[in-house]
């Protein structure tokens, strides 16, 4: 029987890919008139160890599989690690971050990113982490599926329904909530960074992820709100001043985009596969979409492949 995967974000595309890779019959139902998937606004950091600062061990342990998964499926996975720094007066934040995480080394940031030389005395380097461009990765997954004959269509789902619609599934998932995130994309030719850099700050933490051609993604706020709509002036101000603190070259950057999305999240902020009467939900990626969607997708594909073997 065919598997209808609902959604067009990272969860849906990973699920469709994993199911297809197991030889299962798959189609993707693109919801009509849905808001842009939250994953379009993601940082694209594959950083399980950094996320361990606030995420539970499960995310750190399982998320490590994400780097290889992405590298096996799409081009453009950059394995340059993550650098974490803090302004001089907030170095205690760096100590805390080191205590809360593992698989890092103390480094002189300028040795890794010459542009930061002299600006930060110490930093933490997570060498096994990676990053990608979320929009390119999503487009690559889609064309990979399409080139193998998987159809993308609108309309009613059929067969086995795998529901990956994020917050749009809220009517079926009562404990799903939105956590608002705001981000910017800038063009900053004066700044040369090769890997994601996280700037710790007690009130305005931010991360900067390099994209191609001198572009950078600056993110992201975390607000317990399901409000849609544009980036607030406050969020833009906080993110930009954090970026400026990291490197003054960001002051001259051209702002290409301001974006806001709602991260679908369960109360424990851990993604889940849930079985309902007529469908399987894969949802609640929170801020771990690119890290955890492949993990959930592979788990789902294993379950379904086994189920079908037994059914046959």
């Amino acid at each position: 029987m065919i598997h209808s995967v609902l959604g067009e974000g990272v969860t849906a595309l990973c699920c469709a890919t994993a199911l297809f890779d197991r030889g299962l019959d798959v189609e993707v139902i693109v919801p009509d008139g849905a808001p842009e998937p939250a994953s379009r606004f993601a940082g694209g950091m594959l950083a399980p160890f950094c996320e361990g600062e606030s995420a539970p061990d499960l995310i750190v342990a399982k998320g490590q599989a994400a780097v290889n998964w992405w590298a096996a499926h799409v081009p453009g996975v950059v394995r340059q690690g993550t650098l974490v720094v803090a302004p001089p007066r907030d170095v205690s934040e760096l100590e805390r971050f080191a205590r809360a995480t593992r698989e890092h080394d103390w480094v002189s940031p300028g040795d890794l990113e010459p542009d930061l030389a002299g600006r930060f005395a110490r930093g933490l380097f997570f060498s096994s982490e990676a990053h990608l461009d979320p929009r390119q990765a999503l487009a690559s997954l889609r064309s990979r599926l399409e080139s193998r004959g998987v159809s993308f269509r609108t309309g009613a789902p059929r067969g086995w329904i795998v529901d990956c619609r994020g917050l749009a599934s809220r009517e079926d998932l009562a404990d799903l909530r939105g956590v608002r995130g705001e981000m910017l994309i800038v063009h900053a030719p004066d700044v040369a960074l090769t890997r994601p850099v996280r700037l710790l700050h007690p009130r305005f933490p931010c991360y900067i992820v390099p994209r191609e051609n001198g572009r950078y993604m600056i993110g992201a706020t975390m607000v317990e709100s399901a409000r849609r709509g544009g980036v607030t002036a406050r969020a833009a101000m906080e993110l930009l001043s954090a970026a400026y603190t990291l490197h003054p070259g960001f002051a001259e950057a051209e702002i290409l985009e301001l974006g806001a999305g709602l991260r679908p999240s369960f109360p424990d902020n851990i993604p889940a596969i849930r079985h309902a009467a007529d469908r399987i939900h894969v949802n609640g990626m929170y801020r771990h979409g690119f890290l955890m969607a492949p993990v959930c997708a592979e788990q789902l594909a294993t379950e379904l492949a086994e189920l079908h073997v037994h059914a046959d």
Partner: peptide
């Protein structure tokens, strides 16, 4: 880290009063 951890922390602390903000989250929170 998550609402779940928050609820467990409240329980463990024995607190009977919790503060909650409204300014930034607004009505959509």
């Amino acid at each position: 880290p998550s609402p779940q951890v928050l609820l467990e922390a409240i329980e463990a602390s024995g607190a009977e009063v919790i503060t909650v903000s409204l300014r930034r989250e607004g009505a959509a929170g």
